[in-house]
Computed example of a mutant assay.
Amino acid sequence: MNPTIKTIGEKHLIGMRGSMHHGQVDNIISLWKKFIPIKFKVTNTLNEELIALQDYKDFSNTKLAFDIWACAEVSDLNNIPEGLSGLTIPAGEYAVFVLKGMDAGALYREILSEWLPNSGYEVDSRPHFQVMGKKYINNSDKSEEDVYLPIKLKL
Rank of each mutant, 00 (worst) to 15 (best):
M20W: 09
H21F: 06
H21A: 02
V25H: 09
N27M: 02
I29N: 15
S30F: 12
L31F: 02
W32F: 11
W32A: 01
K34N: 12
F35M: 06
F35C: 07
I36R: 07
P37Y: 06
P37K: 10
I38K: 14
I38R: 12
K39L: 09
F40G: 10
F40H: 13
K41C: 12
V42F: 06
T43C: 07
N44T: 14
T45C: 15
L50Q: 13
A52W: 01
A52H: 07
Q54N: 15
D58E: 05
S60F: 00
S60Q: 01
S60C: 01
N61A: 08
T62C: 01
K63P: 01
A65K: 05
A65T: 05
F66A: 05
F66R: 04
F66I: 01
D67I: 02
W69I: 06
A72C: 15
A72D: 09
A72Y: 02
S75P: 06
S75Q: 12
D76K: 09
D76R: 11
P81I: 04
E82H: 14
E82K: 13
E82A: 13
G83A: 11
G83I: 07
G83R: 09
L84I: 05
S85K: 08
L87H: 00
L87A: 01
L87Q: 02
I89W: 01
P90D: 09
P90I: 01
A91T: 03
G92V: 11
G92T: 13
Y94F: 15
V96E: 04
F97Y: 00
G101Q: 14
G101Y: 12
M102Y: 08
D103E: 11
D103V: 03
G105C: 14
A106P: 09
L107M: 11
Y108Q: 05
Y108G: 07
Y108L: 10
Y108S: 03
R109F: 03
R109V: 03
R109I: 00
E110W: 03
L112S: 03
W115D: 01
L116T: 02
L116V: 04
L116C: 12
P117L: 01
P117H: 04
N118E: 07
G120M: 03
G120C: 09
S125G: 13
R126Y: 11
H128N: 08
H128I: 05
F129K: 07
F129V: 07
V131N: 00
V131H: 02
G133Y: 10
K134G: 00
K134C: 00
K134R: 03
Y136Q: 00
I137H: 00
